[in-house]
Design a protein around this nucleic acid. Structure first.
Lengths: 250, 250
DNA sequence: ATCTCCAATTGCGCCTAATGCAACAAATAT
DNA sequence: ATATTTGTTGCATTAGGCGCAATTGGAGAT
């Protein structure tokens, strides 16, 4: 397609794991050392890459700037921010904001738990749809037919013993989430942590993002976490309203 | 140098300002429409770019992932994080963590003020050395001769009426910062805000990062801000110690 | 001080991959 | 229905990118 560009991007991806020297990069990307160097020079000129020391390269600051400028552009994130902080403070749990991208979820914001236990996740990270609370709630908002299509197209790798691996059961789960207004993940993604998630709606009423609360099993049993579902929903509603959502009156 | 790579990077940079269509991008980067499209395909394949709708492209999630993974790699940032939060909470001011990159500072972390007033800055943003508290403290840690060299190589644009525009006066200012252990910015960068900054040292005793407190003039006069300098310094020292710094005993 | 080793860097010649053009297709506005 | 705008594809040309091999330069050992 566009050889040198793609190779350059591959270099960036490789460098995300930490500083590398020429040989390592050449090995990883599968091109000649000298070619790697010339690509790096271009990347360096635009500050996408930086020399770490004489013999090593690392990611440059242009990347941070870009990413943060772009994240600022995501208005869900902007309006949600303060509500997430509040939610984190009042519940004490780890809060995530996620959106769907194709057949995965992408975490776009995060508030760390006040408890010392940290779980693995970072802004920009991806996770499957079928084993996360955010994934379920994001899918639950789709029309029945598209929902079936997406569910049928997914893989269902069993990441833990609790992972749902059956499309039919998954659809039932989505149905339930849709009715309840929140979705759950009982150790289906990571063994030792469970989550609940609710959806954020835009002015058209579409679910455009999901907010989740996560807690390690050792500290809270599932029902304790569920106890925060009211707060979670209210927080999501507040964000939705700020995005122009009209709560249905009944 | 590496044409298609650099053009691809230019596209990313352009897209940071928001979604664009083909013509806009072609115009901005100065290449033919069809070329832009082919480059975008490569970027899209690696998720650096995403189609926003039928007619527009935006930055993709690979970028966020990279940027955040890279930021995680900056160990100063990691170890400083909790101390910054604490400092933000206890002082109520906006806290920044910055490192030097060539002749600029780059903000690598930030804790927002509890006050409603927000100032313009974001993680990944850059600022000049000569008119920021962080810039001054970062330079103050250099050897006298290199310090002179760097100072001589700088431009001194006057961003406000208070900006120091004279290299000699700037060196004096650095001298003072070096002795005091903290640097100040009295509306030299942005008219309506002042800052104080202190340095973070690594195991070799070098200043590798700077922490600053910023406050809008309308809410705090300069002496009030200075009142937090003790806390600021102590926070920096704690970070330094975690990085392996040995406090000099005197 | 000299040698050795290792990794980066450069010159060169080959050749493919990238480019601009122009025709075409699709979607939207008039 | 027609005009207009924007995206997409085929094609011929060539410069930009590539691998190779030789060179440079620095760090450490002798």
């Amino acid at each position: 397609m566009s050889q040198s560009l793609r190779r350059g991007l591959a270099l960036l991806t490789e460098l995300a794991d930490g500083p590398r020297n020429l040989d390592q990069l050449a090995e990883a990307v599968g091109v000649h050392k000298s070619t790697v160097m010339r690509l790096l020079r271009s990347l360096e000129a635009d500050r996408f890459v930086k020399r770490s020391d004489m013999y090593r390269y690392r990611l440059g600051s242009a990347l941070f700037e870009l990413a943060n400028r772009a994240l600022d552009g995501i208005d869900v994130r902007d309006t949600a921010r303060s509500h997430l902080l509040e939610l984190g403070e009042s519940t004490g749990h780890t809060v995530h904001l996620a959106v769907r991208e194709d057949d995965e979820v992408v975490y776009v914001d995060k508030v760390d738990s006040t408890h010392a236990v940290r779980m693995y996740s970072r802004i920009g990270a991806r996770a499957p749809l079928h084993c996360t609370a955010v994934g379920k709630i994001l899918l639950s908002g789709l029309d029945d037919s598209v929902r079936r299509d997406v569910a049928a197209a997914l893989d269902y790798p069993a990441l833990t013993d609790n992972t749902i691996t059956d499309p039919e059961r998954f659809l039932t789960e989505l149905e339930r989430a849709s009715r309840a207004g929140y979705a759950v993940d009982r150790g289906e993604h990571e063994d030792f942590v469970h989550c609940i998630a609710a959806g954020v709606r835009d002015s058209r009423g579409e679910i455009v993002a999901a907010v989740s609360l996560s807690a390690p099993k050792v500290l809270f049993d599932f029902d304790e976490l569920l106890g925060s579902s009211g707060e979670l929903s209210r927080a999501c509603d507040r964000v939705s309203v700020e995005l122009g959502w009209q709560p249905p009156d009944h």
